[in-house]
Nucleic acid binder design. Sequence first.
DNA 1: GGGTAGCTGAAACTGATTCTCATTCTCAGA
DNA 2: TCTGAGAATGAGAATCAGTTTCAGCTACCC
Lengths: 186, 186
Amino acid sequence: MTTRPSMSTTNTPDRLGRPGFAPRSVHESDRESQMEPPKDLDQLHDDVERRLAAAGQRYTDGRRALVSALATAQRPLTLRDIVSTVPEVPQSSAYRNLDALRAGGIVVRISAGGDRAHFELAETLLGHHHHLICVSCGTIEDMRIDGALEAEVDRALTGAAGEAGFTPLRHSLDLYGECSDCGDEA
Amino acid sequence: MTTRPSMSTTNTPDRLGRPGFAPRSVHESDRESQMEPPKDLDQLHDDVERRLAAAGQRYTDGRRALVSALATAQRPLTLRDIVSTVPEVPQSSAYRNLDALRAGGIVVRISAGGDRAHFELAETLLGHHHHLICVSCGTIEDMRIDGALEAEVDRALTGAAGEAGFTPLRHSLDLYGECSDCGDEA
DNA sequence: GGGTAGCTGAAACTGATTCTCATTCTCAGA
DNA sequence: TCTGAGAATGAGAATCAGTTTCAGCTACCC
């Protein structure tokens, strides 16, 4: 369960965090050995194109630009971030295309970081990870934790869910705090 | 302007779960022994009143009604839920008072469950807990997990946060899935 | 070339949340 | 009991993220 990209993604091709595209955070050098070598952007685009095709959708320039922006950013972005990074894609198209990418299991939407939604590539592309969320500026960074602990958490949650008659799909484990930038200011 | 990025509870008294007010989920009988006996509503109101007073704010009827609604609900509520439970408090006052209660560390706002925010009593009143979030109907239920695992998660997160130069405040561990109601329908 | 389904951009719309402002309430001090 | 200051309230307007609509465009198949 854990990793199912996102609720709406009923057509997601594969299951658990298959590490994929480039590593994104500074603190994962220790994982590098267990990961496939990071894909480059071209490989990512090929992968995305294949998935969209499987979902009967085209991989247009606009969508390609969005995926590039998300892949390059190394962290979840708000719609505003995305639109300012890729100004040639108007807001409405950005929303619509992110939606198409979500339906294709390429992108997930995160609601944790305050008022506005963040978007990032799905865990099937990035691997399972968690978030560091700055309570001051709302920035979200990726982080990974030990696999064994991950499994234990998953087991505990599944147990608790069962007791409540709840069918588990995935978990989210986020840490709220102050990022180095905001902490320094204080 | 209230704009303080939602989680602005920078004045929250303490970090991770000090158990307090009544137990709220079915699966915590095993914790009961380690908790203070559950407070009743009157005690809760006294506590809240004291905290608000300390923050230089009054505990008016409207605020009291909101706290009662949240305490009675046994789960996080949306603004809509709250207003329909306490129709004598108009929407604008509800938002404003929830804000005051947030500033006083009485209430927290949860953004996990989709588009609309949920509100619940702070962990200093309810004890540390997590959420089961239904991806179909958006309902959120409380749940608790084993204390030892909790500590381990906390340690792991704090470690990862440190590496990223991040000052940890609290974590959130939520399970997404389908609640029994929505699962049954399918 | 013609047809068609999927895309696009602009603009209007929706719904949650916040702000404004006139009015009312509370409470300490006179 | 009265008063003034400041806090709180209620109604409605404003804001803003996100969604929908619609007419025009494009890629692709025949």
